[in-house]
Nucleic acid binder design. Sequence first.
DNA 1: AGCGATTTGTCAAGTAATGAACAAATACTT
DNA 2: AAGTATTTGTTCATTACTTGACAAATCGCT
Lengths: 181, 181
Amino acid sequence: MSKVDRRILKTQEALKKAVIELMSEKNFDDITIQDISDRANVSRGTIYLHYMDKYDLLDNLMEEHINVLREKCRAASELEFTESTLIWTEYFERHYSFFSMMLASKGAPYFRGRFLDLLIEELKNEADVIKGKNEGLNEELLVRFAASAFVGVVEWWFMNEKPVPHQVLAKQLGTLLERNL
Amino acid sequence: MSKVDRRILKTQEALKKAVIELMSEKNFDDITIQDISDRANVSRGTIYLHYMDKYDLLDNLMEEHINVLREKCRAASELEFTESTLIWTEYFERHYSFFSMMLASKGAPYFRGRFLDLLIEELKNEADVIKGKNEGLNEELLVRFAASAFVGVVEWWFMNEKPVPHQVLAKQLGTLLERNL
DNA sequence: AGCGATTTGTCAAGTAATGAACAAATACTT
DNA sequence: AAGTATTTGTTCATTACTTGACAAATCGCT
């Protein structure tokens, strides 16, 4: 499992960090491979040993965060929505610069899609249209409804630079999810 | 000039950083080579590609700081004592953890010696025993007097965890040097 | 559209770092 | 003091990174 050469981890860490830093300074499209390698203090060619191009690098960054969120979701599966959402918002808070970059700029609709897919996937297990308040509703429709709403609120939160503490965000999102699923 | 492989610089930086960090956590003698390589995220063997042992590594750290101080001294040679001392104390301030470690713990009399030697070397050019207030005094004696005093005050400053701002330290040390040289 | 400059992606040869192993030296225990 | 565990310093084959070069692609400019 952990037999990955530490040099690989070190350079990949440096590269990801460099991308995040640079994205807070200029538009992603204006960032050159050279910029990234300079910032990461790595030879330009080294980047191509790990990624196809800068988009692939960004992709991996996104993938990684999505996976962490999925993991946290699974681990908190038997908690109430409020609590599991809190785990997420804590993660948002911790990696604020990244998520803000990905969700608060209109330049990254791609990540929004990935994020939405994750939510749909995870909420699928939570919706119950057999009995209870949602009896008779179309499951896919319901899940889509909740997931879109969730993403929208999170986008709003980042775009407005944390108008409320992340705990409040979690609490209210949790309440709303609870009401609808 | 700048044709040193960046990998070398990176690992040496990491190693020095690791040593400084570890020294703030435990006695230098209790730090193992393994500790250092772990902290620096470097293979244990790699250390031996650069240094003989951990003492050699510490030596290089000291050497480097001494050289920077010497450099600053030379660059500020035509300034008044107060101003050139301020340049030094700024450097002390910036690398507080290192100097504090080296001067505030009785475990490192070696660095004190190096520091004193540097001062003697640099003050030699400033002392004038031909004319003026120091006419007739033994030059070596005078330089030794001033250098020892200087080191002693700096030690006091670190041991008492900055009892006065570094600007005050510089000002007063400058005044005292002026009075004696 | 054309041209010079920048950026990109790839490559080969060389160098540094890695992990694993090892015997020797130190440091703990009892 | 004997025995066991850590730590040390070296070695060696393998792998990752570096540098410098290169043609191709893309960008900016007029």
